[in-house]
């Protein structure tokens, strides 16, 4: 039951992009086509889950143990940066087709605040390891849901006759606002 609350809360109620404003850069940057949206979601999900597990272990077995809590931000961002680099190298060797699909998105992920945000949130909420992993997976799904919905909307927006000043980013932001309004309807669920 507890797990279900985490899943629904993360995907629908507190959607990471539309409600918590994490990962807006890729949300606006790579949402012009549904296919790139799917690629980005895959890369983010992969790194997010991996990063949450590693940062969880580092926080509990190294930082807490030696009283180094104040180094959290520095330690986490270094872990994420090196993790992204490592994933990139391994993927290139092991699975070239997957690397082809995710490759261009991987370097962008280091500065994706969704990854660091979820890693810090799991520590703040004092989850155990299983809960953290579920939390990360559901946030990744939530990110993917928002991104894919939004890129679908943007593909349609390209074909519409948008007023002059609103073309491009402004209309995309307004569409995102309306999407966020739709997601507010879920707010009573949990």
């Amino acid at each position: 039951m507890n797990y279900l609350v985490i899943v629904i809360g993360a995907i629908l109620v507190n959607n990471i992009v539309l409600m918590q404003f994490l990962g807006i850069c890729p949300f606006l940057g790579v949402s012009k086509k549904v296919s790139t949206g799917i690629g980005m979601t895959g890369a983010v999900a992969f790194v997010m889950i991996l990063a949450t597990i590693v940062t969880y272990l580092i926080q509990h077995y190294i930082l807490d143990k030696f009283g180094l809590g104040f180094l959290q931000t520095i330690a986490f961002i270094l872990i994420i940066a090196s993790l992204v680099q490592m994933v990139e190298i391994i993927l290139k060797k092991v699975s070239p087709p997957l690397y082809q699909a995710l490759g261009i998105f991987l370097p962008l992920i280091t500065t994706n605040c969704a990854i660091l945000g979820v890693a810090i949130l799991t520590i703040q909420k004092e989850f155990n390891l299983t809960e953290s992993v579920i939390f990360a997976i559901s946030h990744a799904i939530g990110f993917g849901l928002a991104l894919i919905l939004f890129s679908g909307i943007r593909e349609h927006l390209d074909l519409q006759d948008v007023p002059k000043g609103l073309k491009g980013t402004p209309i995309a932001l307004i569409a995102a606002g309306i999407l966020a309004m739709a997601f507010m309807g879920f707010s009573g669920l949990v």
């Binding site: 539309l18 409600m19 404003f21 002059k164 000043g165 609103l166 073309k167 980013t169 402004p170 209309i171 995309a172 932001l173 307004i174 995102a176 606002g177 309306i178 966020a180 309004m181 507010m184």
Partner: peptide
Amino acid sequence: LVFVLSPGAFIVLGYLIAALNLIKK
């Protein structure tokens, strides 16, 4: 109320950028 909630952020920023675009043009 919607303006202090999350949709308001997107919408206000969208219109602000649109206004600036028009002024610049």
